[in-house]
Design a protein around this nucleic acid. Sequence first.
DNA 1: ACCGACGATACCGCCCAGGTATCGATCCCG
DNA 2: CGGGATCGATACCTGGGCGGTATCGTCGGT
Lengths: 282, 282
Amino acid sequence: METRELRYFVAVAEELHFGRAAQRLGIAQPPLSRAIQQLERRLGAALLDRTSRTVTLTEAGSVLLAEGRAALDAVDAADRRTRRAALAATGRPGLVLAAKAGASSELLAKLLDAYAAEPGAVPVDVTLCGPAEQERLLREGRADVALLHRPFDSTAGFHTAELSTESQVVVLPAGHPLTVRAHVHMADITALPGLPLPRWPDPDGAYPPGPGPQVRDHAQLLQLIALGRACTLSPESCRAQLHGDLAAVPVLDAPTVTTVIAWPPHSRSRAVADLIRTATRL
Amino acid sequence: METRELRYFVAVAEELHFGRAAQRLGIAQPPLSRAIQQLERRLGAALLDRTSRTVTLTEAGSVLLAEGRAALDAVDAADRRTRRAALAATGRPGLVLAAKAGASSELLAKLLDAYAAEPGAVPVDVTLCGPAEQERLLREGRADVALLHRPFDSTAGFHTAELSTESQVVVLPAGHPLTVRAHVHMADITALPGLPLPRWPDPDGAYPPGPGPQVRDHAQLLQLIALGRACTLSPESCRAQLHGDLAAVPVLDAPTVTTVIAWPPHSRSRAVADLIRTATRL
DNA sequence: ACCGACGATACCGCCCAGGTATCGATCCCG
DNA sequence: CGGGATCGATACCTGGGCGGTATCGTCGGT
C-alpha cells in the first residue's frame, strides 16, 4: 500500500464525496475514482458504498480510515524528524519541547535550567500550545518531547516518565462565598450557580455542546473567572500565576494530576535521552 | 514520502550494501541507487555516507531508519487490519488475541469464558507466542489484542488496562536445597552454583552473550530446570503448571509482575471494546 | 419527463520506475 | 606498483501507470 493511495482514501473517507476530495487533493475526479477502486481490488475489500448520490464507509473502510490516518501520521513524523535531524547535524535547531501554555511553568523552568547545565546540552525550543495539542505535535513529529498531564492528555503511543503529581484546586473570582472555605468537594462546584465550567475545543477545533463559556486558552479563562462568568479546576501549581482578583480553594476529591514527560518510541537521539534523564532526576 | 521509498531505504540501511539490498527487494541496483538519491534530495538530507567500498548511516539516516520502520509497521498494520475487518464482515474470523505461551493461562481461560458469555461475542483466535513476541504481532496488525507482562514487555504505543499483579517465584529442580525454604531473596538465586538463569532470544532472534542455556520456549526451560541445568524467575501463577520434578519458592524482593491487556490505539471495533470491558471486570 | 449532480468508463499522453551496459573509484593481491 | 575485483554512480532505453479530458449511466428533485 502506497502512502499516495492512503492519502487519497483518507480524503474521500473524510469528505464522503469524490469531487470535493479530488479538489482537496489537487487532482481530477476520475483518477481518484480509479485509485480507490484499485486500492479496494488490492485489499480485496469494499471500502466505500457508493450510489450515484451518496458515499458511505463500510466497516472495513472505517478501519482503514482510522489506521490509515495513524500510518500517515507516522510517515509524516518520520519525514519531519529526519529533516530536523539533518538540520541539527549542521545548524542551530536542537530539541523541540511541547508544553501546555500556562501549566507546570516552574517545573518547566527548572527542567530547562537543569538540562542547559548538562554537558552536551543542545538548544531547546519550547512550543507552548493549547490543551491536548501537545499530543498531536508529538505524533506528527513537530516536537521531540512533550509535557503532558494525566488524566487529561492521552499518553497512548508514547513512552512516558512521571515527573510530579499534584492535587487540584478550584479557581474562583476573589470574594466568592466559597473562597472562605479551607477546602471544598467536587459536589460543591459542579453546580455552582452562575459559575459553569468552561468548554475547551475538541482536537478538531469544534466545541462540545453544553453550558459554560467556550475558551481557547488559559488567559481567556482566567479573565472569564475574574469577571465572575466561570470557574475551573486546575492543578495546584497554577496558584503561582493567580493575581489579585482570583482565588483558589483545594478540592479534596478531585483526581490528582500527574505531569509526565512523553517522547515518541524509537528515539535514537542522545539529546532526547539526556533531557529525559535530567527530567526524571529533578 | 512514499512507502516504496521507505522500504528501499530501510533495506539499504539494514544491509549497508546496495547490491544485497537490491537483491532483497527484487530489483536491480541502479534504480535503487537513484531512489535513495531522490529521497535524499527531497528530504534535503544526506542519509548515507558512501565510499565505493563502504556504506554507513548518517545521523539523519539512523533517525529515518528507526522512524521509517515504525511508519512501515503502521502502514502494514493498516493493511492487515482492513483485510481482517473485511473478512469479519462476511465470514468467520473474529478477534485475534496474542498471549505468551504458558503464562497467565487461568486468567486467559477465565477471560475467554467470560467474553464468550457476552451478548454479541465473536469467535476469538488465541495466538500463543514466544516471549516479547506479542508486541510485534500487535504492532504489525496480526493481532487485535494481547496479554503483556510488565515490566518484561514494553507497552509503548498501546493502550493498556491492568488485569492482575502477582509476585514472583523461583522455579527449581525438586529436591534442590533451597526448596526447603519458605522464601528466598534475589541475592540467593542470582549466583546459584550450576543453576544459571536462561537466555531468551532478542526480538531479532539472536541470543545475548553470557552464561546460561539458550531457550526458545517455556517447555524447553522447564525441562532444563528439571534436569538441574537452570533455574528461572516466574510469576506465581506458573505454579499451576509445575509437575513433580519441579518446585517453586517465593522470592520476596523480585519485582511484581503485572498482567495487562493491550490493544492498538484507534480501535473502532466493538468486539475489541467488549473484550477489554470484560477483561477489566474480571 | 427533463435537468442536474455525481461516480464510472474510455481514451490519451507523459513521466518515472526499472532494466542493461558501462564508468570511476577503491581495495586486494601478487 | 599494476591488474583484477568489487561496488556505487551514470547513461540511456522501454513500458506501465498516473493524471488529464470527454463522455456515459444513474439517480433525485422539481
